[in-house]
Design a protein around this nucleic acid. Sequence first.
DNA 1: ATTAGCACTTGACCATTGAGAGTGCTAACT
DNA 2: AGTTAGCACTCTCAATGGTCAAGTGCTAAT
Lengths: 344, 344
Amino acid sequence: MQNLSERNKKILYAIVQSYINNPDPVGSRVVTKRYSLGFSPATIRNIMADLEEMGFLIQPHTSAGRVPTDLGYRFYVDSLEDESVHQSNMEVLHDLYRKLEALRNNIDMFLGEATKSMSMLSHYLGVAMSPASDLTTLKKIDLLKYTAGKIAAVLFTDEGLIKNRVITIDADLSQKDLARIAGYLNSEFAGYSLDEIRMKVLRQMSREKVRCDHLLSRAMQICQDALSFPYGDLFVSGLSGVLDLPDFHDLKKIKELSRAIEDKHMIIKLLDELSESEGVQVIIGSENASDEMKRFSVVASACRQGDRPIGVVGIIGPTRMNYARAIYIVENTAKFITQMLEGR
Amino acid sequence: MQNLSERNKKILYAIVQSYINNPDPVGSRVVTKRYSLGFSPATIRNIMADLEEMGFLIQPHTSAGRVPTDLGYRFYVDSLEDESVHQSNMEVLHDLYRKLEALRNNIDMFLGEATKSMSMLSHYLGVAMSPASDLTTLKKIDLLKYTAGKIAAVLFTDEGLIKNRVITIDADLSQKDLARIAGYLNSEFAGYSLDEIRMKVLRQMSREKVRCDHLLSRAMQICQDALSFPYGDLFVSGLSGVLDLPDFHDLKKIKELSRAIEDKHMIIKLLDELSESEGVQVIIGSENASDEMKRFSVVASACRQGDRPIGVVGIIGPTRMNYARAIYIVENTAKFITQMLEGR
DNA sequence: ATTAGCACTTGACCATTGAGAGTGCTAACT
DNA sequence: AGTTAGCACTCTCAATGGTCAAGTGCTAAT
């Protein structure tokens, strides 16, 4: 990448951009015509041959133009200037989000709507994930009597998530007992992450066996049950829009994509890994860890509140993606969500 | 339909069945060959011409075999005998559901898994919807202090659903106040459907304006906010599996389907209407109210607990669907869910 | 180092063709 | 009168071959 001359960089950049705007393999003619660098087609051809040798381009067949490889896209994305991102019709984005503000009290629903907006604006798939529960911080837990032998645990987290869960217990506890247990749990565990709490509980329980405080050990048991949450919720939308893209005129690729987004675990893992990193992340085609995603690209960003992750939003599309636009949309969506959560 | 002779019925039935098993237009030859009714191809041809005239069959083009129309499928489904449904590998179904029993406390998650099972077994789309909130019966409401100016309302319904919602209020109420309000709401509204409660609240509020009891009017305000739920949750799964069907080798049809299932409101409305009726319902192609669904069929059943609807499960597929199998799967899934809910 | 020119390759497009499947109709059969 | 055999007809589908345009690589000239 560094061993590219300035000239070659410019040409590679132009080729990728041309291909992103228009799904035809780009030939030497159009490069000279549309991007007026002062070279003749023949020169461009030589350079293109070099770039192909270096792995940035590939030709689908002899006598077709060239198409960027994943490496080519990578170069393009890395050399993308922030300024190039400014596109005209992006004010819509803020208008849209302003409408979404009404949902601020319900983060799950908000994320669902945010994916819709992202998919509409980008014409790719919008995805979002609420935080992996393990890292969320418990703010408050309440226990409510539900029926005999069943209680409902309501968890409030610092991120504004509320989760509830029905727990079956073998004894019949009164609401008063439950309030005492809840009070104890709150005093003991509020402010810790669910992960930490789980560990604390385990330690407590082994100690408790000896002391055998009835209510307390029961409290621990309840707590353990209450915290066993699955992953965060996942939202995906925009599939029907994606199918209109020329990239998906091929049945095989449609199947691949739908298989990928149906594998929620895979997507969750993917987004989860991104939730650690700072800023907008771009994963291009073969850079993806998962086989199912090797022909698609991901643009995603974590939403933070201070240093606590509160979710991930992103866009999934073909490797031939308008990265500049996607990055802009994701960046601003993440920013907006962060602001919204701070404002409350 | 009644004006069909017994012989014609048999032949129509055979044609539909053949087409369901094998997506080739069925000609007179195969009818005589595979279904040994004692007729020659020529006779069958005459009858097929009659059936076409009556609207049960259609030929894609001259010199192709015939294909059932929606009317043809309707005849087939209506004359489907219960016995014909027994298929060999259906025991898997119960094995699968036994595994799902672990999720019985979390009806939403359970429905999600149930759709997966249904789609895996049928190779069509599995859908499920938790009850439309309007009709659910309030069992208990709890109010919890969340932050200053915000409270969380937790609703328990008779169906075992728990919903929560953050409500913003303009004053700061203590947990004690909230408990009083909740107590009042419970004594007043428990046992009524959310719909009824909404009406009661409205009546109360107009009366309250005169009397101006501060806490009470506040309670009404909270209650109104707490009850304003969106639709029930919708679960859809199995798209990638559907794409392997020969019926979806056509890009246009894929788009149609994905557009349809992305229109959640439409699907919810569709299932909602079915939740009123008894037993397994079959809607074939053009019988669908929604344009987007006119080329697909729906097999669905409401799940009841007594006379209270607690959800709808179903299968969406091409009109050339294995109705017998789909009906069997839906019927047993619904039955299983009902049993599971009763057992708790 | 760059470029003009040219021969070559290849996929896309189109019309033609022949095979195969299935029909409708008529005339013969029971 | 219902049923069937026979046959001409229609239509799709796959294969074929020929032309066209695009784009390349190479060579020789600048």
